[in-house]
Simulated assay, not measured.
Amino acid sequence: MAEISIAIGCVAAAAWLMASGAMAQGGGWDTGTATFYGDMSGKETMQGACGYGDLFKQGYGLETAALSTALFNNGATCGACYEIQCYNDPQWCVPGSITITATNFCPPNPSKPSDNGGWCNPPRKHFDLSMPMFVKLVKDYHAGIIPVQFRRVPCVKKGGIKFEMKGNPDFIEVLVYNVGGAGDVTAVSVKGSNSGWIKMDRDWGDIWKTNQKLLGQSLSFQVTASDGRMVQSDDVAPANWNFGQNFEGKQF
């Protein structure tokens, strides 16, 4: 009987390890926690560490979240989409799930323990949701913090990838947003009508930068997502483009 029990235990452990591996690779549900910030207007969720600015104007609305350090990945996860559902808490959970886009960073609070106020401290996987999204998961928003299951899902966006021109004549910054598919961007290159392809560097969030002077040239962009797919948008910005303007390219 002891040998049988050991064998069953080994099988169970192997199954658990396989499931954990699948979660780590994005192949299944993972577990974490969620809170909310702001009120039902969602005005506190605007701007943020991904650089998206006015989330209503840019198409994200309130279906957004700030991610803890463990998920934010220094901004590399900006634009990724997650399905989230309240999990294993009958006192607060309601059926159903929400889908959000990562648009902000939830900073750690070293002065508080991770299980009592320091919800975004490493290594916690935590989502700080807009209030309208949080209340879709719970019976009462007074729940405060809830256990959740989450998984990466494809981002579904209207229209093409958007490019907002920033910077000044000495350098160019481009905010890349409204990215479908994997959602999170790993590389951006720009090509002027009088230049070859130039690899841009992530400045912060989803703002990409080059010191090349490209004013007066029409611009093309290559955007590569975390799944390795690349989409090229030729001559997105005309030669008379200017800072502050937005342009739309192709979509994944």
Rank of each mutant, 00 (worst) to 15 (best):
A102T: 13
E63V: 04
V94S: 04
G144N: 13
T69P: 06
N109F: 14
K125R: 15
R151W: 00
S68Q: 08
V138K: 03
P113K: 07
T101M: 10
C86L: 04
T69N: 13
N104Y: 06
P107K: 04
N121W: 10
P147Y: 02
G51H: 02
I146Y: 06
I98R: 01
P110V: 09
T64H: 02
L67W: 06
K57W: 06
N121P: 14
L71M: 13
T77P: 08
A70I: 01
C106L: 04
I84D: 02
N109P: 04
P108M: 11
V94T: 07
P154C: 03
T103H: 05
A70D: 14
Y52V: 08
T101F: 11
G42R: 01
S111K: 07
T77C: 13
A76Y: 08
S130P: 07
D140N: 08
P132I: 12
M133P: 09
Q149G: 08
I145D: 07
C106R: 06
N109Y: 11
T99S: 13
G61P: 07
R124F: 03
L137A: 05
T45L: 09
G59V: 08
C155Y: 10
V148L: 08
P90L: 00
C106Y: 13
L62F: 07
E83K: 00
D54H: 08
L67D: 07
E83L: 01
R124H: 11
A65M: 05
M131P: 02
P132M: 14
C93M: 08
D115V: 00
T101W: 09
C86G: 05
M131F: 05
L129D: 03
Q58M: 04
A70V: 01
P113E: 15
Y60A: 12
P90H: 03
C86A: 12
R124N: 15
K139H: 00
A102W: 10
I145V: 14
C81F: 07
M46S: 12
M131L: 11
P123L: 13
F105M: 12
K112A: 15
T99R: 13
G118W: 11
W92D: 09
E83T: 05
F127W: 03
D115M: 10
Q47L: 05
G48Y: 06
C81M: 03
V153Y: 02
A76E: 12
S97C: 04
S114T: 09
G61R: 10
V138G: 02
K125D: 05
C81Y: 07
Q85W: 03
G51Q: 01
A76P: 04
A76G: 01
P90S: 04
L71G: 03
M131N: 11
N109H: 12
A66E: 14
I84R: 06
Q58H: 14
V94G: 00
V94W: 09
L55H: 12
F72N: 11
E63R: 15
K125A: 10
A70K: 11
P132R: 07
P122Q: 13
Y141K: 15
C155L: 12
T77D: 14
G53S: 00
P154Q: 02
P122V: 09
S97P: 00
G51R: 06
W119A: 15
T64G: 10
